[in-house]
């Protein structure tokens, strides 16, 4: 268990002064992940909010080596960085023990960067890929992604007169990654900082590719007051909209189990992006979203039960 006091005493690796919105979830992700790392790290970022707000020349919020290449290729870029590290270490030109972290939003990870991510994991590059998932293309002004949930309003899935927001369900990227059998995979969120820190440390210790899908509320795109970011993050867990779990060595483990599973409406009704659903003529979008959440949560419970029954004694 990480101690807040110890984390706070560290030198910041992602510093203030960047151009993130008040209440930005993505910057909290970057700061928490880098503070969790116990080894020196080299960071890559995909094009997106985090990249744009943190590196406006001549300023940089990154107190660690950082590279940005393009939108869809942070996993490939970091594959190359890690390959160079292995080559130069073999030749004795590098002696330090380093770790590699790639940051991508859901646009750069679920959609345009999915192929590069799949390649990085299949080739077993020892890189931790962090998806800061805010469920839409926020950098270009809130357009739908395959991470956008059913019913959510975005500018390309607007709450219209005949179609109430996004028609489709979310893609389950974490399970797609798990199908690659990475060294470590998990879902986390900033509201449970200790859970996230622990997962980052496990991922960086794992000898192979790792992936953490970090639920990252966006006050602008989700339309809530900036001071509510952590509260919204916690509500996602309490309603099982975003289950916190990990996968390693073939077993699932739910890391935070809500005492009482709240209905998703408690998560939806604090955000403007779902406001139209409560005025809609029927409850079909909310029901479909709730059914998806229940299905995934129940499956997860079963999978983690399987794990328990395998444990000796």
């Amino acid at each position: 268990m990480a101690k807040l006091k110890d984390l706070a005493a560290q030198e910041e690796k992602f510093v203030g002064g960047h151009r993130g919105c008040a209440g930005c979830g993505a910057t909290i992700v970057a700061r928490q992940v880098l503070l969790a790392a116990e080894q020196p790290v080299v960071v890559g970022a995909a094009t997106g909010c985090l990249e744009v707000i943190s590196t406006i020349f001549p300023y940089s919020a990154w107190n660690v080596p950082y590279i940005h290449n393009a939108f869809e290729n942070v996993a490939a870029t970091m594959s190359g960085v890690e390959a160079a590290y292995k080559a130069l270490k073999k030749k004795g030109k590098i002696t330090k023990d380093l770790r590699f972290i790639a940051f991508g939003g859901d646009g750069g990870t679920y959609d345009i960067g999915l192929q590069a991510l799949s390649g990085m994991i299949e080739r077993r590059h020892r890189v931790l890929y962090i998806c800061y998932n805010n469920e839409a293309y926020m950098n270009t002004g809130i357009q739908r992604s395959s991470a956008t949930p059913r019913g959510a309003h975005t500018t390309t899935s607007p709450a219209g007169k005949v179609i109430p927001g996004k028609l489709q369900l979310r893609k389950n990227l974490t399970e797609i990654v798990i199908a690659h059998e990475p060294a470590y995979a998990a879902q986390a969120t900033i509201g449970y900082w200790n859970d996230l820190v622990t997962k980052v440390r496990k991922a960086l210790d794992a000898d192979g590719p790792s992936f953490i899908n970090v639920y990252s509320p966006c006050r602008l795109g989700w339309a809530y007051a900036p001071e509510k970011t952590i509260k919204v993050s916690k509500l996602a867990v309490e309603t099982c909209v975003w289950p916190l779990y990990e996968y390693q060595d073939g077993t699932y483990h739910i890391t935070v189990k809500p005492k009482e599973k709240k209905p998703i409406t408690e998560f939806l009704n604090v955000q403007g992006r779902f406001g139209h659903l409560f005025q809609w003529k029927d409850d079909i979008p909310i029901k479909e979203y709730q059914a998806e959440v229940d299905f995934i949560w129940n499956r997860l419970l079963k999978r983690s039960e399987v794990q328990k029954s395998k444990e000796p004694g």
């Binding site: 290449n69 393009a70 869809e72 490939a76 970091m78 190359g80 160079a84 080559a87 130069l88 390649g119």
Partner: peptide, 19 residues
């Protein structure tokens, strides 16, 4: 790599790393 796009992206990363 799994595509030429990723191949050249990895090359750029590796070159930036001094390789």
């Amino acid at each position: 790599a799994e595509s030429e796009h990723s191949a050249i992206s990895a090359c750029a990363g590796a070159a930036a790393a001094g390789a």
